[in-house]
Structures are given as structure tokens and as C-alpha cells.
């Protein structure tokens, strides 16, 4: 028997198996279910709004904040320094172009608690271990940081530090979001370019 024909038959058999496989062509979760479950049940995947406020005040460059809301909502108000990746478009392109950014922490937030946690489960499922969620979302941010008010007579040193962070974060937040729309857009665009896909391959 001719080796070439044998080779062809073998390849056709393998091709037939491939044709039957549900190869999605795009992305499938690569982390094993049990491992993913224990990962997402761990509390360390959450950041409180106070922790995020501290990142913003200290201008922590190892943190990337990702806003999952619609561009319209993003334009009205957003956490300073965040980039806009609407949840509906998270999987349209390669999420790696957003999440493989050399940052140690990518923090998702949406208005509430649902979209951000979907995004976290997806990102962790695709093995992006540097992903976290801001618990409570923008609603909790407003509730805690923007509407923070101290009621009482005495303040402890810890409370004072927390309070100062909140006040400064609130100031930055208000200043950035009070910019005229044209300036905001410019800022958003420049951020967008920074998050552009990396090139590679044989060129």
C-alpha cells in the first residue's frame, strides 16, 4: 500500500473526528470547573469601594479599573482613570487585549453587582488571574464614598484615615466628571488607544 494514500486516509479520518467536535473557534473556559468555583468563591476576588478609593487617591499604576456599563452611561459619570468595556462587548474581541495589560489588578465594576460578577467569572474562567470586582458597583461607590458623612463626636485615627481617603476620592471623582464633555471625550479616546490590541506575528 502506498504510504501517501495511507497518510491521506489517516488525515481524512482525523479531519472527520475534528469535523464532529464542537470546536467553537472562539473562546472556551480553560480553567477546570471545580478550580474556577473555588476561585470565585474566594473573598480576595472582591475589592471594597474604600479599597478602590485608595487606589485612585494614591494613583496606583498597577491597577486598571474597567467600567462595564454602556458608553452613554460611561460618558455621564465614571470612576476616574477607568476604561470603558461594555459587558456586552467583553467577548467580542480578544479579552486578552484588555486584560493582558501588565497590570497586576483589573477591577471590574458596573452599576450593581451582576454584570461585574459575570465578567469576573468569564475572565477567571479564561484564566486571567489578575481580575477582581468592586463590590456593590457604582451604586455602592455613591452610597459610601460620594455620600460619606461623619456623624458622631469623636473620630478614631483609623476612621479619620478612611474618611480622608473618601473625601479625596470624592474630590477627584467630582472634578474629573465635571469636566466639559469635549475634554472627557478626549481623555477617553487617549485611554482607548492605550488599550489597543498588541501586534504580533510575522510581519
Amino acid at each position: 500500500m502506498n504510504t501517501r494514500i495511507k497518510f491521506s486516509v489517516g488525515l481524512i479520518c482525523l479531519g472527520f473526528i475534528l469535523a464532529l467536535l464542537p470546536l467553537s473557534g472562539s473562546r472556551t473556559f480553560i480553567v477546570k470547573p471545580q478550580k474556577l468555583l473555588s476561585e470565585i468563591l474566594d473573598d480576595y476576588t472582591y475589592f471594597t469601594v474604600d479599597q478602590v478609593a485608595r487606589f485612585i487617591v494614591s494613583e496606583d499604576s498597577s491597577v486598571q479599573i474597567i467600567d462595564l456599563r454602556s458608553p452613554e452611561e460611561f460618558r455621564v459619570v465614571n470612576i476616574p482613570g477607568s476604561i470603558n468595556v461594555p459587558y456586552s462587548r467583553l467577548l467580542d474581541n480578544d479579552p486578552g487585549s484588555i486584560l493582558n495589560n501588565g497590570k497586576t489588578k483589573n477591577i471590574f465594576y458596573s452599576n450593581g453587582d451582576i454584570d461585574s460578577n459575570y465578567a469576573l467569572a468569564i475572565a477567571r474562567g479564561l484564566n486571567f488571574k489578575n481580575t477582581y470586582v468592586m463590590k456593590g458597583g457604582l451604586n455602592e461607590w455613591f452610597n459610601t464614598v460620594m455620600n460619606s458623612n461623619f456623624i458622631g463626636d469623636r473620630i478614631s485615627a483609623r476612621e479619620n484615615a478612611l474618611f480622608e481617603t473618601r473625601t479625596r476620592a470624592k474630590k477627584i471623582f467630582t472634578e474629573m466628571n465635571s469636566l466639559p464633555d469635549s475634554m472627557k471625550l478626549k481623555f477617553i479616546r487617549s485611554k482607548h488607544i492605550a488599550a489597543k490590541k498588541l501586534d504580533g506575528g510575522c510581519e
Partner: peptide, 17 residues
Amino acid sequence: SPGLFTFLLIIAAAAMF
């Protein structure tokens, strides 16, 4: 699907050979 495409390509290649 990518798998089906591969299969068709192999068939096409075998025919071409």
C-alpha cells in the same frame, strides 16, 4: 465550525494530490 473546515480542506487537498 473550524473542525468542519479542516475536514473539507483535507478532502480538497487529497483531491488535489
